[in-house]
Each structure stands twice: as structure tokens, then as C-alpha cells.
């Protein structure tokens, strides 16, 4: 294609042509900001390591970072930590996938049927407000001490934000775009796949991003209440043994799983939504 890059940039509105609009030069930002973040972490760790012992706080109240590392190594070799991490991750991913799928499908179905949406909206609102994790003991009574209650809680927790986001986007699809498609003699399913669905993708992705973090919460509650496996179970186990370091480590690992899942969804999101200009800070 003969068009030069200059020509294109010239036609772009101001502020869309890169991150250079902020006050610091790009390379400096790329080095200084992460560096400052790391420095904050380092200072916090140093204080954590030396301040509690200096104040005489016992290690079963606040274990120091070095003790957490020792405990992590012990859990790896003696408590089959990898298996627990694997179990929690698997449950979170499956629960997220199922919850996301159901949430999206119901969101689109209700979005296409305003009548059903109006009939069901009070219940959707009620269920959305209800603390889903509180259902965990109920599911254990129904299904026993196995993977099913955890999975159901996770699916429920993930389901609603995605449903609500998709529904919201279906309500706000540009009427004129739909009319344009109608004017081109498109039928309902063509309008859905060519206009409504692609229009909703930003909202769907935002819902999935929220869902990814909630999935870890759902699994954790399930494991806390009735598990024999997983990081949530290790928290209750550690609590029973007054092993504070174990509780800290399990929380740290759960956070890590949540961050990785969030990051993966955010990565897919930026790939999928490449056609939306980056917000300039």
C-alpha cells in the first residue's frame, strides 16, 4: 500500500498517536515508574521483616516474610502444595468458563426478548444482590463434600456480572445501526451476528474481567466451607494448627491465581478490542 505512515498520522486526531502525550519521555516512564513500584514493595518488605520482631509481636500473629518463604518451601515438600494449587486453579477456570458461558448466553437471550427481561428483571436483581457465597453450605448439604458445591458457587458468582453487562450492552445498541442493517434487508440473526453481538463485545469483556477475579473468591469460599483440597482448605487447616504463615501463603497464592486470570482476560480483551483507540492518560 502506497500510503505513507506520515500521511496517516497527519489524519489522526491529536493525542491518539501514542503514549508520548504525558509529561515524562517514554523511556523514562518505562523505567522510573516500575522502578518506583518495586522500591515501594522492597521498603514494605523490609519494614515487615524487622518492625514486628522489634515491637515484640509474636510470629503466630504476624509472621515475617522470611518465615513465609520457609513455610512455602515446607508446604511444597510436605503438604503437596502443587496439588492444592492445581485443584483451586482448575476449579476457578472451569467455574469461570461455565459461569461466563451461561451468563453471556442468558444475557443475549434476555437482551433479544424485552418481554422476558421485564418479567424476570426483579428476580435477576434480587439474585444479583443476594450474597452468592452464602449459598455454599446449602450446596454442601445437597451435594456433599466434593467438587460440585465449589463449582456451583463459582459459576453463580461469575454468572451475574457477565449477565448484567451483556444485558446492558444489548439495551444500548445503537438503534440507527440496527436500522441500517434492517435497511440492508438483514434478518434478525444477521443483525445479531453482524451488529448486536460485536457491539456488545466491550461490555462482555468487561464482565469477563470482573468474573475472572470473582471466580477465585467463589472457589475459595467453597473450599473454606467444605473442602478437603485446595488453597481455601489450606487456610482452614492452617488456622486449626495456628500456622499463621500457612494462611498468609495460601492468601498470597490465591491472589496470584486471581491476578494471572485477570491478566489473561485483559490480554484477550486488548487483542479483541484492537479497533478501539487507547484512552490517552
Amino acid at each position: 500500500m502506497p500510503s505513507s505512515a506520515d500521511e496517516l498520522t497527519a489524519s489522526l486526531p491529536r493525542g491518539m498517536d501514542g503514549p508520548s502525550s504525558a509529561s515524562l519521555p517514554g523511556w523514562l516512564q518505562a523505567v522510573v515508574l516500575p522502578g518506583a513500584s518495586l522500591l515501594v514493595a522492597f521498603i514494605a518488605l523490609v519494614i515487615w521483616q524487622y518492625l514486628p520482631p522489634a515491637l515484640g509481636v509474636p510470629k503466630y500473629i504476624i509472621p515475617v516474610p522470611s518465615a513465609l518463604v520457609e513455610e512455602m518451601v515446607r508446604m511444597w515438600s510436605q503438604e503437596n502444595l502443587l496439588m492444592h494449587i492445581g485443584s483451586t486453579t482448575t476449579m476457578a477456570v472451569i467455574g469461570f468458563a461455565l459461569g461466563g458461558l451461561f451468563g453471556a448466553v442468558f444475557g443475549y437471550l434476555l437482551g433479544l426478548s424485552p418481554l422476558w427481561e421485564r418479567i424476570l428483571s426483579p428476580y435477576i436483581l434480587a439474585l444479583q444482590i443476594a450474597p452468592k457465597v452464602a449459598f455454599a453450605p446449602l450446596f454442601i448439604m445437597w451435594f456433599g463434600y466434593n467438587a460440585i458445591p465449589k463449582l456451583i458457587v463459582t459459576v453463580l458468582v461469575v454468572f451475574f456480572p457477565i449477565l448484567v453487562n451483556v444485558l446492558q450492552s444489548m439495551r444500548t445498541v445503537d438503534r440507527d445501526l440496527v436500522n441500517l442493517a434492517r435497511a440492508y434487508s438483514m434478518n434478525g440473526s444477521q443483525i445479531f451476528w453482524k451488529v448486536r453481538f460485536p457491539s456488545s463485545v466491550p461490555n462482555l469483556m468487561a464482565g469477563l474481567r470482573i468474573g475472572a477475579t470473582l471466580a477465585v473468591i467463589g472457589v475459595t469460599v467453597g473450599e473454606l466451607v467444605g473442602g478437603e483440597v485446595g488453597l481455601g482448605y489450606l487456610i482452614t487447616f492452617g488456622e486449626g494448627q495456628a500456622n499463621t504463615a500457612m494462611v498468609f501463603d495460601a492468601i498470597f497464592l490465591l491472589t496470584l491465581i486471581g491476578i494471572v486470570m485477570y491478566w489473561l482476560v485483559a490480554f484477550i480483551e486488548t487483542r479483541a478490542l484492537h479497533y478501539i483507540p487507547k484512552a490517552h492518560v
Binding site: D174, D176, L177, L180, R182, A183, Y184, S185, K194, V195, P198, V201, Y275, I276
Partner: peptide
């Protein structure tokens, strides 16, 4: 109903941003 023989354009360009 909508016809194959009519094209219309509004104040908004109505371009699909993902295409």
C-alpha cells in the same frame, strides 16, 4: 418494507468500529 434499491446515510457515519 426495507428495499434492496434504497441506500441511506445519516448525520452519524454509522461505520462499524470493529470492521
Amino acid at each position: 418494507g426495507p428495499s434492496q434499491h434504497v441506500g441511506f446515510m445519516l448525520q452519524k457515519d454509522l461505520l462499524l468500529p470493529w470492521r
